[in-house]
């Protein structure tokens, strides 16, 4: 029963820097920087995350500006807003979600190379599309 304890960052909290979680974590406030989680990481509705996220499972209901890497899966709910590149084994996107960025999904996506393969241009900014852009 005690295994399911999650770290919750409250709605009126602003954290800047690098955060590491050894288990579940839920963000209700604002984080800027980097997030590493060994367990699940959830960005709740109304929360703002201007950080790169590295976790096993990422659930997004709020706003995320940064690259997301998940060894298992990423879930974007209908109210989710993601601006950044995404690498995961599985992706679930609900209709209505907002997503701008490169995307690499599949069993081989996280094993060979992580987000480096997607080549993001700048921190928190999704890489521009290069395919079909020649004129």
């Amino acid at each position: 029963m005690a295994e399911s304890t999650a770290t919750v960052i409250g709605p009126d909290t602003v954290i800047k820097g690098e955060l590491t979680f050894n288990s579940k974590a839920k963000l209700l406030g604002t984080v800027e920087g980097e997030i590493h989680a060994k367990g699940d990481f959830e960005v709740a509705e109304g929360a703002t995350c201007k950080a790169s996220i590295d976790a096993s499972k990422v659930v997004i209901d709020g706003l995320v500006e940064g690259n997301v890497t998940a060894s298992d899966r990423v879930e974007l709910s209908a109210k989710a807003q993601l601006r950044g590149d995404l690498v995961a084994q599985k992706l679930v996107v609900s209709e209505g979600a907002s997503f701008t960025g490169h995307c690499k999904i599949g069993t081989g996506a996280t094993s060979n190379g992580t987000s480096a393969e997607v080549k993001p241009q700048a921190k928190g900014e999704p890489a521009r599309a290069t395919t079909g852009a020649k004129k």
Binding site: L91, A97, S98, T100, G101, H102, I105, V118, A127
Partner: peptide, 25 residues
Amino acid sequence: KGDCHASSVQIEPGATVEGGYFHVP
């Protein structure tokens, strides 16, 4: 495989997406 420009997108678990640029909406 490829870029996606759409007003909304729905992806089910298990789908394979190979490096496309998504602009939704």
